[in-house]
Write a protein that binds this DNA or RNA. Structure first.
Lengths: 108, 108
DNA sequence: GGCGTATGGTTTGTATTGCAAACCTATTTG
DNA sequence: CAAATAGGTTTGCAATACAAACCATACGCC
């Protein structure tokens, strides 16, 4: 079948994808945080193989979106940054996957 | 469980995501083309709700990546641009989904 | 025929942003 | 005390998604 002109009336266009969640590094961060209750900066850095700078900006972006919380404290005398997923983060993640599958099955 | 320092040795880091496929508009284009054998420019434009300019650049990018072929001809006296997915495009798409699921199940 | 509009795109300009290098502060080690 | 290490943040840059502007041809119609 060849798709020709004006066949469909463009009802809903592309399923809307949340760009904040869609970025692979951030998907990975959310995956981890959805599994571990909370994780500190160094853990995410080594686990995901992200540079510090990169991780830092991703975390603040996720925090600004309300998808995670970032807590700063001290481990001994050293700074310690810990991240945890929020409820909004969890729902955003599941909704993102729903949209992805909708995208995959566009014409199915 | 709180994820602490140096727990894992960062074996594989983030599953590598093909950015060319990962872009939502292009995922949508590939979804359609995977279903219809071929589709012409106007069809994709209205079906996906993309602007002409946007669609045009996405198509050339997919073509340069070898994921689709773009054929220019005429319908009557009017220009006609038609796109079709390639084998590489199909496998890229399935591999992309495998990587996505791997990303989702990072700690599962 | 002439002229405005529609069709089918491509090219250009711009704002966003992913990424690491550079930087910063404090701490530990030699 | 000097140098290295830890734990991050800020800066600079290159890539890029997107639409506006543009371009060429075709059609409607007077």
């Amino acid at each position: 079948m060849t798709a020709r002109r004006a066949d469909p009336p463009a009802p809903q266009a592309i399923p809307v994808i949340d760009r904040t969640v869609h970025e692979p590094a951030r998907m990975a961060i959310l995956s981890v945080l959805d599994a571990v209750e909370d994780a500190d900066f160094t853990f995410l850095e080594t686990m995901l193989g992200l540079s510090k700078g990169n991780l830092s900006t991703h975390l603040t972006r996720l925090e600004e979106a309300g998808l995670i919380t970032v807590t700063k404290s001290f481990r001994g005398r050293r700074p310690l940054t810990t991240a945890a997923i929020t409820d909004r983060g969890r729902t955003a993640r599941t909704e993102h996957w729903e949209q992805l599958e909708r995208l995959r099955d566009l014409m199915a």
